[in-house]
């Protein structure tokens, strides 16, 4: 198995981004539904009352679902994901092991790498991390959370290796 681990701080980034996603998007659905159902409760018509109940239940379901998803995605998944992700940049290949339920192992020979880049979004910058991406002619692979200097060093290393490693078989 590959030996290197990601920077532990990436767990916080994953938590935060999951939190943002799970608060923002469901709110867009929950707030209007709640408002509509609330406005309908004022009506005295029987059909409206029924609709208000149905909408209210839906809203409640959404809230409960969101909370459950939040508990899973914010408190459980990031740590597991970190534990399951390991990588290694060998002299001639990159080796990645990942996946919580579906365990996946990926080998990318350095000779196949087309370009290497690092990316730093706002959340990653807050924690001083970077995301390293290697692109082959058939898709990209990412090592998502590395300390900024480590990421730059690794990028340079991979770029150099990708240049000089020649086909051997």
């Amino acid at each position: 198995m590959p030996t290197e681990k990601l920077d532990r701080r990436i767990i916080g980034v994953w938590r935060l981004s999951a939190l943002v996603n799970l608060v923002l998007w469901p709110l867009l659905l929950i707030v209007p539904l709640a408002l509509i159902s609330f406005s309908l409760t004022g009506s005295h018509e029987y059909g409206d009352q029924q609709a208000a109940w149905a909408l209210g239940l839906m809203t409640l379901g959404l809230v409960v679902g969101t909370v459950v998803a939040m508990i899973i995605c914010v408190f459980v998944v990031p740590a597991l994901r970190w534990r399951r992700f390991s990588y290694q940049v060998g002299e001639e290949e990159i080796d990645i092991a990942t996946g919580i339920i579906w365990h996946k192992r990926i080998i990318i020979p350095l000779i196949r790498i087309q370009n290497v880049d690092t990316l730093q979004g706002p959340l990653l910058r807050m924690r001083g991390l970077k995301r390293l991406t290697v692109a082959t002619a058939a898709g990209e692979h990412a090592i998502p959370g590395l300390a900024a200097e480590a990421a730059d060093a690794l990028r340079d290393k991979v770029a150099v290796l990708a240049r000089i490693v020649q086909e051997d078989v």
């Binding site: 087309q114 990316l119 990028r155 770029a159």
Partner: peptide, 22 residues
């Protein structure tokens, strides 16, 4: 001497290296 190197991005800062050979 070996590759094209681009840095860009305001919010998402990106740093790309493309070896000439590729």
């Amino acid at each position: 001497t070996t590759d094209v190197h681009v840095k860009k991005g305001i919010i998402f800062v990106q740093d790309v290296q493309v070896p000439f050979g590729r």
